[in-house]
Nucleic acid binder design. Structure first.
Lengths: 253, 253
DNA sequence: GGTATCCGAGTACGATGTACTCAGTTATAG
DNA sequence: CTATAACTGAGTACATCGTACTCGGATACC
């Protein structure tokens, strides 16, 4: 029942941590830290990947590192800021991803969508966070900068470039939220996707038959009305959106 | 640092509560309940509207009602289920909204988008929730059924109707998340939208100047690259998406 | 009126984030 | 080489929040 909120951390602290390039401070008295910030963040991400967001708490991360809960506070000001760091790190495009570029603007944006989708598939806890405003770190900026490659050589105002990329991201995140939330293995109740719909079904049938939702009933009568996978839903909306974008600027692919 | 997760409640319990039409049980021994489930839910919504999701806890809701925390558990099995009820109630279209219909399918979907946007503006805590799979109650179904009116008289398969509506919702929610999250008045740190960006600015400038993000730097140089309001961003993506939908089925508006 | 049932409230416990403290360690100054 | 100063890691403890358990009292049916 408890989960962190991204961006709830003091943005100043999060940004400071995000942007200080692992600056190993030299020439300081005292022992060397036993861990690095990167290690802490990586451990927390691994834990979240494995056990979901509800299992992500300071004691668990500390256990994973073989230390006490309070030791973590030597590296991050609090849990909220740790989550900010996790998000930026998990959002960072890999070198392989950075190396790829779509042949056309449209193909590039499709790659952006697919890559983002894959990212959520690998780190479903990202979807479970309360993402408020994004904390912009090196990872997110690298991703955004890569996305902007789509428009190189085209004459589109920066404002519209932003709006287009934002639109793509909204579509991907929306579809991912609907279809990709893996009920983190060990959060009770362990309701799988099928159990979920099985529980709803009797009520939906009754609702259909009640006559209160005539259009819903009509649609539900069609055989495959609800039979689409997440990636499909994402592609559908994405393609329509990009069709519209293409027409709007008479873009040559 | 703590917040509820929608859909984390046992769906069976939530659904049962959602669909039992305030069935006042008659002829039972024992005193009459002091409150109704509706009252509890309405109180919780009012509290969340006023103070945000972090202030929404069982003790606070109980205080609001002038009773003890445990009394609430006579009406709901737990906080998660209460939140499910709140979501469905807050999502329910008002009678006035239900009465309106767009002249064209496109206008209807635009009304859907605007109405949803307004709903998030009125209940920003909806955006702060970890919405997992939706728990379908009378409110959500009524909203969906209303949305489906867009396609009455058109020959579009139900599956595509669903996909289109889902796409619209993704776009609205994405834009709302980016622009509408009102940092709930009293959650620390009380960072407003402008403070937020002010904190990020120096890092963004340094990032731009570092040369690591050349495309981002180019875009940021344009005067109004980031100057759009949320509703604008939503309309932009929505219009492009609907353009694409329209072309795809050669829809006559 | 007896009785079965249900309501409201109080007490208390477990989980979790984190403030505070202190002993031990180690890089630098002399 | 030694003294010093700062910093690290760990432990203890408290506040918050969800909620299990329990019981006295009220109420409708027989």
């Amino acid at each position: 029942m408890s989960s962190p909120q991204t961006g709830a951390g003091d943005p100043r602290r999060s940004l400071e941590l995000l942007w200080r390039e692992g600056g190993a401070q030299e020439g300081r008295p005292g022992p060397k830290p036993r861990f690095t910030l990167d290690q802490v963040v990586a451990t927390a991400i691994a834990l979240a990947d494995r056990s979901g967001v509800t299992a992500l708490n300071m004691r668990a991360v500390a256990d994973e590192l073989g230390t006490g809960p309070m030791t973590l506070y030597r590296y991050v000001p609090g849990k909220a800021e740790l989550v900010d760091l996790m998000v930026d790190r998990a959002t960072e495009p890999s070198p392989e991803e950075l190396a790829v570029t779509g042949e056309t603007w449209r193909e590039h944006l499709a790659l952006l969508a697919e890559g983002t989708w894959d990212g959520y598939a690998a780190h479903p806890w990202l979807l479970e966070l309360n993402q408020r405003r994004p904390v912009l770190g090196p990872g997110s900026l690298a991703g955004f900068d890569w996305a902007l490659r789509a428009f190189e050589g085209h004459d589109i105002p920066g404002r519209e470039q932003n709006l287009i990329i934002t639109g793509v991201m909204s579509i991907v995140i929306g579809a991912a939220r609907d279809h990709l939330i893996a009920d983190s293995s060990d959060t009770p109740p362990p309701t799988t996707e099928s159990e979920w719909w099985a529980a709803q079904e009797p009520y939906l049938i009754r609702a259909s038959e009640s006559g209160d939702y005539p259009r819903l009933a009509a649609v539900s009568n069609e055989e495959d009305a609800w039979s689409f996978q997440g990636r499909e839903a994402m592609r559908f909306a994405l393609d329509a959106f990009l069709d519209g974008v293409q027409a709007r600027w008479s873009l040559d692919q």
